[in-house]
């Protein structure tokens, strides 16, 4: 569906919820956005699906409570992603550091011959990026959001977002180069 039509449909549903506390309309809204929000949180939570789904539920419950605060100058999905990101940050800060940090140096993140495919290895490499770069790469490159939207969601300054995006891309490009050269020489690690 065309993004403008999507946005208008969201606004229509929001209006119905705010005017009549229409739960059916909220049901539609959750149905339309659950996949993206849960995918976003799964990546932020490094594929901990149970935690991601708990946070996604919190996200939608908060959205229900705070819907009147939504201003239609940003896309509804961006507003929702920001709530989800804040839920994630809250959970991240509450957990002991060792539970959420799975820091593998990027050069060791994915031995070319150790895992099934490039896609899986790339995910590992992505997880091994420094936190700021990983988050920006998730929103900007993976989810296709603009720098401005990424800044809006993460609360980072626009300049920082652009720097993280450039650095993250450079690191992954280097990783890919190493991967390809290892593939062609048949090096195993």
């Amino acid at each position: 569906m065309v993004p403008e039509v999507e946005s208008r449909l969201d606004l229509l549903l929001i209006k119905r919820i705010l005017l009549h506390e229409d739960r059916q309309a909220f049901n539609q809204l959750v149905r339309r956005h659950q996949s993206h929000v849960r995918a976003q949180l799964r990546r932020l939570c490094r594929n901990d699906h149970a935690l991601a789904d708990d946070l996604a539920q919190e996200t939608f419950l908060l959205a229900w409570r705070k819907l009147s605060q939504y201003r239609s100058d940003a896309r509804f999905s961006t507003w929702l992603f920001r709530i989800a990101h804040n839920c994630f940050l809250q959970a991240y800060r509450q957990q002991p550091r060792h539970e959420v940090q799975d820091e593998t140096p990027l050069d060791q993140a994915a031995g070319p011959r150790q895992s099934a495919g490039l896609q899986r290895d790339l995910q590992k490499a992505l997880q091994a990026l420094p936190e700021g770069e990983r988050v920006v790469m998730l929103y900007h490159t993976q989810m296709g959001l603009s720098h401005e939207e990424t800044a809006e969601i993460t609360g980072l300054p626009l300049g920082t977002v652009k720097t993280h995006a450039t650095r993250g891309s450079a690191r992954l490009r280097q990783w890919l180069k190493d991967y390809q050269s290892n593939e062609s020489t048949g090096v195993t690690t």
Binding site: Q34, R38, A39, Q119, L122, T141, Q142, G144
Partner: peptide, 11 residues
Amino acid sequence: LLRDSAADPVP
């Protein structure tokens, strides 16, 4: 590759 990995819908 990054976009492909993000495209999988969550049921």
